[in-house]
Write a protein that binds this DNA or RNA. Structure first.
Length: 590
DNA sequence: GCCGTTTTCGGCCCGACTGTTTTCAGTCG
């Protein structure tokens, strides 16, 4: 997960160089950097892993640095890693990292990103050839020195040179929304290969991670070689990393190059393989530990018994059941601690709990369909109610509604609602919060609506203070019910404005307002960690599609899956409420 | 480096593929 920021998290410490602010992020980054340096020195991988693990423990802990009085007694933090933390807190820097930096040139660290190069090989390049950067590595390759090293050869040298060509140009990870069309395209290709009996996308994509570094497909076939060849022929392949009986790893041409792994398995192995490659890695490690305690061994092919027999399963559900565990949806498989939260699965938000969508647009502003068409589609999804929320006049590029047009629209919504059976259509607005911290409509007009959303669409670069002034003006207005997409981010594209989200969540709790999880895969805003914080404070969350067309109403599924990642309880999600409960929460009667 | 109601030493998840090797280390997920 992208770890954007922690709730207020500062501690200031004096060092010889003056005031240094050490926060949790700095500690985590330092531990990770130490691990990288050690990796390059060829350190014991378990030692390297211990530093990474310590960083992970801190990252997982929801508390701020100031709240953690027991930081040195956390499981996973011991003498060595604890000393680094103490060092940072007392001196503002880590003595160990300083020493490591003297031994390892900074230019070596990015080389770890070159496929095929790990700590040991880079260490060798450094010690034998004096390589200390991408440039000197290129020079060494071109001079033919690399292929002369033991353990290296001609092919390795060529591969490194080829990788250096595009070095640093490719993004590490791609957003879920950008991978979605690639997943669909590959699914179609697999459907068309006769030797493929079944397939499924797994990996972090299946877990609805915001960003994924690659795509993983599990393919059931009795003829892996044929499928391997058919895939290589049908896909726009721009590079092949591995190709065998069990797997195919290729880079596929799309907007951005996408790395795709295919694993070929039998139908008996399918459930185990799907579970294994869905991960997360830590979830799998935890599962394997559980298996080991019982004398069993989990692999991607099944569960090996003490007598060597391999058990296979017809579904992930029966796989979990074998270990006396309930089915954990992919979205909650994270650091392994989820396995202790099985009793919360019962109330975890699910798609079938959703009975409304509270944020959508029509042709009245910048949507593609009419009020009745949207209503018809929502009814088709089985919803009991919905809200039409077109833009307000400030947003001219979106054909925002003037007060007069909004009053016309209210009449039309009421008419459509009276005409249509099986769904209740409510009147709302997505009103702009203007740059000067005023609202786009007056209170009198707002009081005529059933549901009022307020959101920011302009002047993102204002200082946080001003952004918070705007948000406060909206959230404290008694007519405003919900703040939409609270940070304005577009994943992988723009950060959005920078509100103090923790403060916003406190205000929502104080004024009894709803915060939105915008289900649009570009946004997924609120982000996971904030959803968890909001839930902790009892702030109701709405999962809304913000649909601008009928098709986009399907974003709800992505939104729900993302909400699962934050373990949202269905009762906190206002879309699961009945119309009566919803209206009574808003203090409105109809 | 971290951990521990069988353990303070000896584990630490497991397997595929590649390239460089004559049986395996390194990398990757």
């Amino acid at each position: 997960m992208q770890n954007e920021s922690f709730p207020s998290d500062e501690g200031s410490f004096l060092s010889e160089r003056g005031m240094v602010t050490v926060n949790k992020k700095i500690i985590i980054k330092t531990l990770e950097e130490i691990a990288l340096h050690m990796e390059l020195l060829g350190e014991n991988p378990f030692k390297v892993g211990a530093f990474r693990k310590a960083a992970g423990v801190l990252e997982q802990d929801p508390r701020s640095l100031a709240e953690m009085d027991d930081i040195l007694s956390l499981k996973g933090i011991g003498k060595g890693t604890g000393a680094v933390i103490t060092d940072l807190l007392e001196k503002g820097e880590s003595e160990l990292l300083k020493e490591l930096r003297e031994q390892v040139p900074d230019g070596l660290i990015p080389l770890l990103k070159i496929p095929g190069l790990g700590g040991k090989k880079i260490a060798k390049l450094h010690s034998e050839l004096g390589v200390d950067s991408a440039d000197s590595l290129r020079a060494a390759c071109e001079a033919g020195e690399v292929s002369k090293l033991a353990g290296f050869g001609k092919k390795t040298e060529e591969k490194i040179l080829a990788e250096l060509e595009t070095f640093g140009q490719r993004p590490d990870k791609l957003p879920h929304w950008q991978l979605e069309p690639v997943v669909r395209m590959i699914g179609n290709v697999l459907d068309a290969i006769p030797e493929v009996d079944r397939h499924k996308v797994t990996g972090s994509y299946r877990r609805t991670a915001e960003l994924s570094s690659d795509l993983d497909f599990i393919v059931v076939t009795r003829e892996p070689q044929r499928v391997n060849e058919a895939l290589a022929a049908a896909l726009p392949v721009i590079g092949t990393d591995a190709s065998g009986e069990a797997k195919l790893s290729v880079t596929v041409d799309s907007d951005e190059p996408v790395d795709v792994d295919f694993r070929f398995v039998t139908k008996e192995q399918f459930a185990s393989a799907v579970h294994h490659f869905t991960g997360s890695k830590d979830h799998n490690v935890r599962m394997r530990q559980i298996a080991k305690e019982r004398g069993e061994k989990i692999s991607e092919y099944g569960v090996e018994q003490e007598d060597g027999r391999i058990l296979t399963f017809d579904s992930e559900k029966s796989f979990y059941a074998h270990f006396d565990l309930p089915f954990f949806p992919p979205t909650v498989r994270k650091d392994g601690t989820e396995l202790e939260r099985g009793d919360e699965l019962e109330t975890l938000i699910r798609q079938e709990d959703i009975r409304s969508d509270l944020h959508m647009h029509t042709v009245w502003s910048d949507g593609a369909e009419s009020i009745r068409e949207m209503a018809d589609a929502c009814r088709g999804l089985g919803y009991s109610h919905m809200v039409i929320t077109d833009h307000s006049r400030y947003l001219r590029v979106a054909n925002g509604l003037t007060p007069e047009r909004l009053r016309d629209q209210i009449r039309e919504v009421r008419e459509a609602d009276a005409e249509m059976d099986g769904i209740t259509i409510l009147c709302g607005t997505e009103m702009d919060i203007l740059p000067d911290a005023t609202l786009d409509f007056d209170d009198e007009l707002l009081s005529e609506l059933d549901f009022v959303i307020a959101s920011i669409h302009s002047n993102f670069s204002q200082p946080q203070e001003k952004i918070m002034e705007r948000l406060h003006a909206a959230i404290s207005n008694p007519h405003v019910d919900m703040i939409a997409h609270p940070t304005g981010r577009i994943i992988g594209r723009r950060e959005g404005y920078s509100p103090d989200v923790a403060q916003l969540i406190d205000w929502a709790a104080e004024y009894g307002k709803i915060l939105e999880l915008n289900a649009n895969p570009y946004r997924l805003d609120l982000a996971e960690e904030w959803l968890a914080l909001a839930a902790e404070k009892g702030v109701p969350i709405a999962i809304n599609t913000d649909a601008h067309s009928v098709g986009q109403l399907d974003y709800m599924e992505t939104g729900v899956r993302y909400a699962q990642r934050a373990w949202l309880n269905r009762d906190l999600v206002v879309n699961t409420w009945t119309l009566d409960r919803f209206l009574s929460h808003l203090g409105r009667e109809r």
